[in-house]
Design a protein around this nucleic acid. Structure first.
Lengths: 336, 336
DNA sequence: CTTGACTCCCAAAACGTTTTGGAGAATCCT
DNA sequence: AGGATTCTCCAAAACGTTTTGGGAGTCAAG
C-alpha cells in the first residue's frame, strides 16, 4: 500500500537500505533486515511494478499472439498449455499476456507494438508458417522467442514441435501394412509448417511404397474444410480406402462426408490432435498426438533458457507422435 | 528504437515539445507537429511502456485468474471468450495477462500480488463462488473488476452471467410437461454460484409441480463426477426418468452411467454449456447455453465501464439461457 | 508605448524503484 | 598507535515518460 519512501521514513532508514534489506543484500545487518522485513509485511508493502520495470529495463512480461484467422483457436488443450506455460513463467517473475490480433492488423503489427514499445521481454509464437514474417522480425530485433511449430527459417530459432513428418509417415505405412493401397491425404493449408510437414510425411510413405500421390486434397483446417476435401477425394475415379487427415477437426468433417456418400464405415480414417470429441464420433476417431507431459511447462522453460542466452540450437524440441487408436482406422478393407 | 531524448535532440526540439506533438496537443504548431510525427515514424519511435506506466500511474494491464482446481479450465469456448475480451481491451490500450494459480497459492494470493503490486488496473474473475473471498478483497481495495458469474456478496458488483435458475427451471418444467414425474438433478459443487443457482432452478420447478426434491446428487463438475452422481441416482428405489445435469461434462458422465446400467436410451437427459462434443455423443446431447453474441467483448466492455467509474448496478448483465435441442432430452417415456 | 491575449515552446519536477560509489564507524592486525 | 579491513548505511543518479507552470515572442487593441 505504501511506497519505499514512506516505509523508509517510518523506520528512520534510507530508501536504499530498505530496498536492499528487502532484496536480501548482505550489506545490511541481519537486525535491520529483519526489522525492515517485518515492517514491510505489516504494511503489506509491495514494490511498484512499473517503477521496477522502468529501472531494471525489463518488462517482466511475455506476450503470446493468438491467431484469430480461421474462426477459432487451436485445439482445446491449447488453453491448458497456455495456462501451464503462464504458471511456469510466473515462477520466474514473468507474466503472460495474450495478444489476439484485431481485425485490420497483422500478427506482425502486434509483435512490432510489443517489442518496439518495450512492452515485453520475449515472445511466444503459435501457428507458425513455413515462411513466417514474425520470426524474421523477432530475429532481426534480437529478442528472445520460442515458436510452437517449426518454420523454414534459414537461421535456427528455438521451437517446440511434434514430428508430424514421422507421425504421418508412420500412419500411412500402417495403412499400407493393413493392405490399403489407395490412401488419401486431407491436407491443411500448405503455408503452415505443420500442414506441409504432415503432408510430406504422407507423401514420403506413399513413395516408399511405390504408390501414386494424387489422392491429396487441401482445405481449411476446420470441419468444413475436411468435409469438402473428403468429398473431393470421394469423387476420384478410384476412391481411397483410407484417409490420413491433417487434423481431427478435418477428420470429423471427413467422417460427415463419408456418412453422406456411402453410409460411412467403409473407409478407414485417422486424424491428429486427439480432440476430446473424437472419442464420441461414430466410429470413434483414431488419431495421433504429440508425446510429452507438460507441454506448457516445456514451452515456458525453453523461453526462459532463451532469455538466459542459450543458443537456438540447444532449444529445439521435437516430440515424437504417438497413435491414439480408437476405431476409425480399422474399417474392414473391402476389395476394390 | 530510440527514446524521446534522442528524438528531441535530432530535431533540435525539447523533450516536452516532442512528447506533446506526438500526443497531438494544440500547443505545438501544426508545422512542428508534422515534422515530429514524420521523424518519429521514420525512426520507428514507440514510447517506452514502463516509463509511461510509471508516470501515468496506470499499469495498462488487466489480469484474469485461471482456476486450476478441477483438472482443467472451463468450457472450450473459454479461450475464445478470453481472446475476444483481450481484443476489446486492447482497443482501449489495456493488455490482458492470464494468471493461473500455482499450486500452494490461492486465487486470493494472486489478486493480492497483482493489485497491491500495482501490476494491474483492474481484474477479471471467473468461476465465482457464492461467497467469494476474491470479490471481497477487490471490493475492499476499491479496484475495478468484473466477474463471470454472480456471487452472494451483499454489496453489488459488476458481473456477466447466465440465468441458470430460469434455465434449469424451464428445462425441468419441460420434462414435466412431457410427462416425466421423477426428474433428477445432477448438481455441481454447491459452493459455486452457478451450481447452486442451477440446482435452485430445478428445485423450484419440482416444487411448483408438487414433486419431491430428493432425486439430487452432487459431484465434481467433471465427467467422472457426473458418472458417479448418475450411478447414485440410479440406485434410488424409484429411478428418475429424466436427468437435468449442471454441466455437459457431467451429463456425458451420466450418459456413460446410463449405458452401463440399462443400456442407455431409457432416460432423458439435458446438460448445460453446449460443448462441441455433445453433438457426437449417443444419443446426441441436448443442452443449454447462455444467449448473446460476443461474450468476450461484453465482458471487456463491462470492465472498461467499471474503470470509467460507472456504478456496479449498471454493470450487471444477466443473459437468458436457450435450449440447444438435440436428442437426449426426448427418450421415450416408459411407464414406471 | 503599454497592455493583454495568444502562440509556440521549454526547464524542471514527478512517478518509485534499483544501483553506484562512497562515508563513517567499528574491528582487526602488526 | 596506526593502517587496513569489514560492517552498515546512505545520497544521488538513473530509467523514460508526462505534466506543470511558465517564458519568450508576436500581434492587436487601447
Amino acid at each position: 500500500m505504501a511506497n519505499l519512501k514512506q516505509l523508509a521514513q517510518s523506520l528512520g532508514l534510507s530508501i536504499t537500505t530498505v530496498s536492499r534489506a528487502l532484496d536480501g543484500y548482505a550489506d545490511v545487518s541481519a537486525t535491520t533486515r529483519e526489522r525492515v522485513r517485518e515492517a514491510a509485511d505489516r504494511v503489506g508493502y509491495r514494490p511498484n511494478a512499473s517503477a521496477r520495470r522502468l529501472r531494471k529495463q525489463r518488462a517482466e512480461l511475455v506476450a503470446v499472439t493468438l491467431p484469430s484467422d480461421p474462426g477459432h483457436i487451436g485445439p482445446p488443450h491449447f488453453l491448458d498449455m497456455l495456462s501451464g506455460c503462464a504458471e511456469h513463467l510466473a515462477a520466474a517473475g514473468l507474466n503472460l499476456v495474450i495478444a489476439p490480433v484485431p481485425r485490420g492488423e497483422s500478427e506482425l503489427d502486434i509483435c512490432r507494438r510489443f517489442v518496439d514499445g518495450r512492452r515485453v521481454d520475449a515472445m511466444l509464437l503459435v501457428r507458425t508458417k513455413r515462411k513466417d514474417e514474425r520470426v524474421e522480425f523477432l530475429q532481426s530485433r534480437g529478442i528472445p522467442f520460442v515458436t510452437n511449430g517449426r518454420t523454414e527459417s534459414l537461421t535456427p530459432h528455438p521451437y517446440i514441435d511434434g514430428d508430424g513428418f514421422a507421425g504421418f509417415r508412420a500412419a500411412t505405412l500402417r495403412f499400407h501394412a493393413a493392405g490399403h493401397r489407395r490412401i488419401g491425404h486431407i491436407a491443411g493449408p500448405q503455408e503452415y509448417f505443420f500442414a506441409h510437414d504432415r503432408c510430406r510425411g504422407w507423401r514420403a510413405a506413399m513413395e516408399e511404397c511405390g504408390l501414386a500421390t494424387d489422392l491429396c486434397a487441401e482445405g481449411a483446417p476446420l470441419e468444413q474444410g475436411g468435409y469438402l476435401a473428403a468429398l473431393e477425394l470421394l469423387r476420384h475415379p478410384s476412391r481411397p480406402t483410407a484417409l490420413v487427415c491433417a487434423t481431427d477437426e478435418m477428420a470429423i468433417g471427413a467422417l460427415r462426408a463419408l456418412r453422406e456418400v456411402d453410409g460411412g464405415n467403409q473407409i478407414s480414417i485417422v486424424g491428429h490432435d486427439d480432440l476430446p470429441m473424437g472419442a464420441f464420433t461414430s466410429p470413434p476417431l483414431s488419431t495421433m498426438r504429440m508425446t510429452g507431459e507438460h507441454l506448457g511447462a516445456s514451452f515456458a522453460s525453453l523461453l526462459l533458457r532463451a532469455i538466459a542466452g542459450e543458443t537456438a540450437e540447444e532449444l529445439q524440441e521435437l516430440h515424437a507422435i504417438e497413435f491414439v487408436d480408437r476405431d476409425s482406422h480399422r474399417r474392414p478393407l473391402r476389395a476394390a
